[in-house]
Design a protein around this nucleic acid. Structure first.
Length: 493
RNA sequence: GGUCGUUUGGCCGAGGGGCUAGGCACAGGUCUGCAAAACCUGCUACUCCGGUUCAAAUCCGGAAGCGACCUCCA
């Protein structure tokens, strides 16, 4: 088993990963709120934890990966009055709330499939676990860490903090100070302290998403679903909880509080957070209105607020995936056309090298050392999933492949096999890249292309440039590039 | 205002006391009827100011820029 080190937000350092149950991993990642199309920012946690999921399986773990769908809706920050995102969208579009949720869930799945993000083991819906959330709230009340106020239930943060002193540990916040400075208990509405957060919220008459509960017809607070569903499917203590950095506070902090108030400890051993994607240096997000949806990337059309086209071209799903993997998950990545185009070129270079590898003829002796790449790639992955370094090693391997192809070095068959296996493992299986160029009827196309290139070779040997150029141009207009080399012509789409 | 993080070459982006990151772009060369690809060569950077050290982009202190989260609000 590879020694995997991951950065634990809780301890602020890299720790050797050791699962609760040997050989098995329970992983929970905060999924999307389905009230709008997924954008580039959604792709980051999905891809980051997809690679972690793939890697854990690759090194031999049996993984249960839970990623929720929030279809109950968090309240809109700037909503008029206590209306949640999904309910608002539904009202505006004259739809059932669940119709909205289903529509965007389908769209999310389609986009993730294109990005080659594996479906999690369990993808629970918040709306399907209202009972579990009510049970959770009951337990918190029983333990004395919540109070009922006018049909709503709030978490008693001060009592929790007095007993556990844990709130703020994850996000590095000093909550005690904040608590002691917010003293005016009057005029705060239903809450005893402004810091208290809702576990159950009574629905206003116009609020259309609602469920019965012991306290009121209403809906669960926005941190309860992850606690309830995480516990249900992964147990009271599981291994990894992931999500975007923006969820660290208050969402994950509150999850810890809820879970700790019931069991005396937090939900998991390792907290992992991916950083944000920025656009012109600013976080890409729904609330800022500066996001570009994934479908827009795939189609190459996005108009910004001023009606200006932001995308110079379409970017394929694998270009997006490669772009994200070329940065470490804990760094911010800034969107730009130039960076995306560089990613596309790099991705294509890697894929070309893989194709070239399949065509190489082995020599009796090897003039290079192919060993070591695999070990270096494992080393990088074990060092907190350092995909950019993995990629750099793979580029080194790609260069070597091209060198051999140009007859400046030689491979034995075992060298070729080793490199093929290296690419299969790290490029395709672990990093989840897909070869977009290779189609299904590739055998037929290969045959046709070979024939066409033979004709062209004949024309060329007769110095019939008109014919050879015509073939090349015609193929070019179909998107097929002809590349003349020393050993004859090859082609690519 | 608070907390945390970040600042690397034309661009993206790793690393993190002495040793080449890698990719993209660009320039020259090899190959080629031309072009493209590939290969070779070049471009060699760490915000600023102090300090520690034989040695700092890397550690310490300070400044500035940028960002995230928070403070209002569920």
């Amino acid at each position: 088993m590879q020694p995997l080190f991951v950065y634990n937000t809780l301890s602020r350092q890299k720790e050797l990963f050791k699962p609760v149950h040997e050989g098995r991993v329970g992983m929970y990642v905060c999924g999307p709120t389905v009230y709008g199309d997924g954008h580039l920012g959604h792709a980051r946690p999905a891809i980051t934890f997809d690679v972690l999921y793939r890697y854990l399986m690759h090194i031999g773990y049996k993984v249960r990966y839970v990623r929720n769908i929030t279809d109950v809706g968090h309240l809109e920050h700037d909503a008029d009055e206590g209306e949640d995102k999904i309910a608002k969208k539904a009202r505006l579009e004259q739809l059932e709330p669940m119709e909205v949720a289903q529509y965007y869930t389908n769209r999310y799945h389609a986009a993730m499939d294109k990005l080659n993000v594996l479906r999690p083991s369990i993808e629970p819906l918040a709306s399907g676990h209202i009972i579990e959330q009510i049970e959770l709230v009951k337990k918190i009340i029983e333990k004395g860490y919540a109070y009922v106020s006018n049909g709503s239930v709030y978490f008693n943060l001060r009592k929790y903090q007095d007993d556990f002193k844990a709130y703020g540990r994850l996000s590095g916040r000093v909550i005690d100070e904040m608590l002691s400075t917010t003293r005016d208990l009057d005029g705060q509405g239903e809450k005893q302290e402004t810091m208290d957060f809702a576990l159950w919220k009574k629905a206003s008459p116009e609020h259309i998403m609602r469920w019965p509960s012991p306290w009121s017809d209403g809906f669960p607070g926005w941190h309860t679903e992850c606690t309830a569903m995480g516990t249900k499917y992964l147990g009271e203590t599981f291994d990894i909880h992931g999500g975007g950095m923006d969820l660290m506070f208050p969402h994950h902090e509150s999850e810890i509080a809820q879970q700790t108030s019931v069991t005396g400890h937090g939900p998991c051993r390792y907290w992992m957070h991916n950083n944000m994607i920025t656009i012109n240096g600013k976080k890409m997000g729904k609330s800022l209105g500066n996001f570009i949806t994934l479908d827009e990337f795939f189609s190459g059309s996005h108009l910004d607020g001023d009606g200006k086209e932001m995308l110079e071209q379409a970017y394929s799903p694998m270009t997006i995936r490669f772009f994200i993997l070329q940065a470490h998950y804990r760094s911010t990545v800034d969107f730009s056309n130039e960076a995306l185009q560089a990613a596309q070129k790099g991705y294509e270079r890697l894929m070309q090298a893989y194709h070239t590898l399949g065509k190489l003829r082995p020599s009796k002796v090897s003039s290079v050392d192919v060993k070591g790449y695999r070990e270096k790639c494992y080393e990088a992955m074990n060092d907190d999933i350092n995909t950019p370094v993995v990629i750099s090693h793979l580029f080194d391997a790609a260069k070597l492949i091209n060198t051999v192809n140009d007859h400046h070095a030689t491979f034995t068959q075992s060298d070729i096999d080793e490199l093929k296996s290296l690419f299969d493992s790290f490029v395709f299986e672990i990093m989840g890249l897909r070869d977009e160029a290779s189609g299904d009827n590739s055998a037929l196309i290969d045959g046709l292309m070979q024939m066409i290139l033979d004709i062209r070779a004949t024309a060329k040997s007769n110095k019939d440039w008109a014919t050879s150029d015509k073939i090349r141009d015609a193929l070019g207009s179909l998107g097929v590039t002809v590349k003349d080399g020393k050993d004859g012509a090859s082609w690519e789409v």
